[in-house]
Amino acid sequence: MAIRTVSRTILYLLLILLSLFYLMPVYVMLITSLKPLDQISLSEMWQLPHSLDFSSYQLAFEKLAPNFMNSIYLVIPATLLSALLGSLNGYVLSKWKFRGSDWIFTALLFGMFIPYQSILIPLIQFLREAGLYNTIPGLIFVHVVYGIPITTLMFRNFYASIPEEMIESAKIDGAGIFKIYQHIIIPLSITGFVVVGIWQFTNIWNEFLFAVTITTSSQQPIMVALQNLSGSQIVQWNVQMAGALLAALPTLLVYIFLGKFFVKGLLAGSVKG
């Protein structure tokens, strides 16, 4: 029993130490963002601020607010549309399989692993031709299209747990593919939509490569603007950290309140072991 107590103590000690390591960046981000610029020095990096100073938040907010709104206008329609499309595809690929549909599914999945650099040059040519370059609708379109594989995968797996008998008996009652979707599948899809919605929201909010190559200045989403903050001549670390926190806040809040679904989505994205 004594050995057990000692090893339990060591276990908790290690867990606490590791937790401190994982929280350290957040601690430093918070205290730095609450200091005025002249207190940000080598020797005081780890110390709490003498008094709370929110001026860096005001500055960061002034600089980032328009881009924050761009991200909102981007992420909401893009998340909704790609979740709807994924639900439709997932439904067909799990409940209305046809010859070759499993191979189509695998071919779709490949699209979620590719480095997007490999489609970027044609994509930008296409968006210019279509008049969507440097617009938020252009970015929405891109996220919906390249979101097809992951949202289809998630919904297909989700619908696999709906018993086949339910579909079969509805078919016997004369319901067709669309009726069944509308009356049976959609009402059962709430959790699926939450998981996929959170996943797409987080990914689209955090995305950078499409954002930085498809939009310029006034159309840029928040992550590009945050990255640009550090490009200025004198790096104001307090403003940078306040900006980082502002940019991270929506996804952090989603994680704090809906973390369970976030982790579900995370595991769903791993295809299989």
Binding site: N206, M223, L226, Q227, Q240, A248, T251, G259, L266
Partner: peptide, 20 residues
């Protein structure tokens, strides 16, 4: 505590660790 960094953007992570 171990999961939350995954909800962050690589950009946010980059900015914080650049400072750290």
């Amino acid at each position: 505590i171990f999961f939350f960094p995954m909800a962050l953007s690589f950009i946010v992570t980059g900015v914080i660790w650049q400072w750290l």
